[in-house]
Amino acid sequence: MSGAHSQQMDASTAWGGGTSPFKVSYGKLMMWFFLVSDGLTFGGLLCALGFAKFANPEWVAGWPMGEEIFTHFPFTHAHLPLLYVAFMTFILIVSSVTMVLAVEAGHRMDKRGVIKWLGLTVIGGFIFLGSQVWEWSTFIAGPDGDLTTWHDNATLQHNTYGGEVIMTPGEHGHNHTEVVSYGPTLYANFFFFITGFHGFHVFTGVIFNLLVLRQVIRGVYHKRGHYEMVEKVGLYWHFVDLVWVFVFTFFYLV
């Protein structure tokens, strides 16, 4: 243990309390503080969704049924409720598992193990992000991608159970699809905001994981004597999975 991070310090610089009451390092404690506040943010958003659902009856806001929200699957037109979202959930759970395995490998100072599992976590994160892009684009442009966003801000108004669509013959034999009535906008606002906010967290998590993976490959943590940085970004990554568990329940099931 040599280097600036383990040097002696005098008692006046150190805090006066002896050992830390929480028995965790500064960085980990701060990551937990951040996650508590971030979790309360998500809690507030999901509670707001609950309030909107309790406050607005079916005939005012037109709430869709959970299992009917997303029934598409790539490469098929079959009606498959929940299957695609279940796939996304599964990807996130698996990448959470690979992350905890990377942390475990770090505790054994197994550099190659950390690289392998952290690399798989990054890949899982990218698969989830790609899945969400496909889900969103299917929501916005319809399953065949033939809705335009030019007419009346169709982006947020249309979804599979909402806006009514007409086809009009256009030039060159192509059909134009236009949104003629609005879907449940209150629902769409919540859906895109909360899943978007979560997707932004996934994106940030993938960036963190990539940066830490680079440091692992360069041997920075091996030289330091511990892989705690993997554990800290791991906390963040598990938190992202945790939030998705709730988003999945309150958007697609209940």
């Binding site: 383990s6 002696q8 310090m9 830390s20 028995k23 390092s25 505790h107």
Partner: peptide, 15 residues
């Protein structure tokens, strides 16, 4: 006194 904010607890987790 050894700086406890970075090193000590991190090493506790080794197995």
């Amino acid at each position: 006194m050894l700086r406890d904010d970075i090193v000590e607890y991190s090493l506790d987790y080794h197995h």
